[in-house]
Structures are given as C-alpha cells and as structure tokens.
Amino acid sequence: MASSSDSTLAAANIDAKNEKNSNITVSGKTSANNTKMTIATIQKAYHDILKDPTSLDEAAHYLYQSLLDDAVVGVFLEIHHLHRTGNLDALDGVPEEGTDASYRIVDMPNYDIFGISSVKKLMDCTCPNCDRPVSASRFAPHLEKCMGMGRNSSRIASRRLATKEGTSASSSSSSSYLQTTVGTDDEDDIDWSSEKRRKKTNQGNRNNGSKKNNGKSF
C-alpha cells in the first residue's frame, strides 16, 4: 500500500505548518525535538490551521486520506486474520441448493405471499397443559378452560387435576374420565379427542365437523 507517499504527505503537512508558525519545531529526525512540543503548541497549531482556509482545506484532505487509508487497513487486517484462522472458508460456505425459485415472493390476487391460495386451513395442536390434540382455531378458549380460568373452568380444571393425581396422570384413564363425567357440561369437549378419536387423528381423517384435516399437530 502507498505507505511512502502517505508519510511524505504527512511530513509535507508538518513542514507547511512550520513555515507558517516558527514556534512549532517539529522536524522529526530526533526525538529530542519532541520535548519542545507541548499541548499548548499543538492547540495553537490547530487553531492556526482552522483560521487559514488553504491550510484547513489541506488538513481536511489529509485527514480524509488518512482515515480512508486506515479503514482499508482495517478491512485488510480482518480478512488476513480470518484467513490465518481458516475462518474465511468456514464463513463463506456454499449456498443452499435449489431454492432460487421456490421462495420467490408471490403478488397475485387470491394467493398469499407464498403462492398458496389464502383459504383457511384447519390444523391441530397439542395442548401444552393437558397434552391432548386440540383444533388450533379453538385453542385459546380451550386453554382458558384447561388452565382453570373463565366460567365453569375452575371446577373442570380442579376436577381434572384431582383425576390426574389419582391416576398418575395416565392419559387414557383421564380421557375416559372426561368422556364420561365432564363431557356434557363442557362446550369445548369436542376438541378433546377420546382414545378412539385420537387413533383416527393419526390416520388423518378426524375432525370436529366435516372439514378435512391435514393431520398435522405440533
């Protein structure tokens, strides 16, 4: 890199300063000269540069060049280090294959951004509270009751808790309990599959109603 021209420029700048102000004796060469430099002389030199438009222009140019040069060195050092540690190849990697077209944004009426027709799909999810499959679109009302909130729910929840404790929380026994006793007074009951219904779910044709289910639950 242009190191020699850079230092010449710096030296030229200092020489230029010296011509204008004899108080500053920065000729370099020997370090003894530096002892004459004080913060006050630096500040004076700085104000002198600011006063004169020509020297200000020159100083700004010099500063810009130095900063640019320094930034380039920074990038060089970063890459050099990555190269030395072998991380340059590690970071690069290879692009994923065959994704060029499939993720392209779609902007068409009646289709969403993924190019799928925007008809609501039915999904199931497993309730984290009771581990039963629940229709996703009815999950919030289910959870409210399941966690023991809202009307009737505290009664149902505490009853279920009692059952769980009593039968060491085995899912088959608690579901049969619910089917027989709680079932009638809980409007959300249809979302809780019984053992029979759950088997069907796995085959992908269960649901609370007639609509087809994609059988996905996570």
């Binding site: 890199m1 190191s3 020699s4 850079d6 230092s7 420029l9 710096a10 030296a11 200092i14 920065v26 000729s27 370099g28 060469k29 370090s31 000269n33 530096n34 430099m37 004080t38 913060i39 630096i42 130095s66 900063l67 040069d69 320094d70 060195v73």
Partner: peptide, 30 residues
C-alpha cells in the same frame, strides 16, 4: 499526541508502529 511520531521522518500519520523491544516509533513500511 506529544511523542508518538515516526522517529525517522516525524510523521504523525495513523499508520505508526511501535517496536516492542525498545523505545522506537516508525511509519508503516520502510
């Protein structure tokens, strides 16, 4: 500000190196 300049040419440029064996500052390069 007062002492970190090239002992060879007096430059205060950003690219100055310090010798870690003795007291010496010098510009990048030669």
């Amino acid at each position: 500000a007062l002492s970190c300049c090239c002992f060879e040419c007096g430059s205060y440029g950003l690219q100055v190196y310090a010798c870690l064996h003795c007291i010496y500052f010098g510009c990048r390069g030669a």
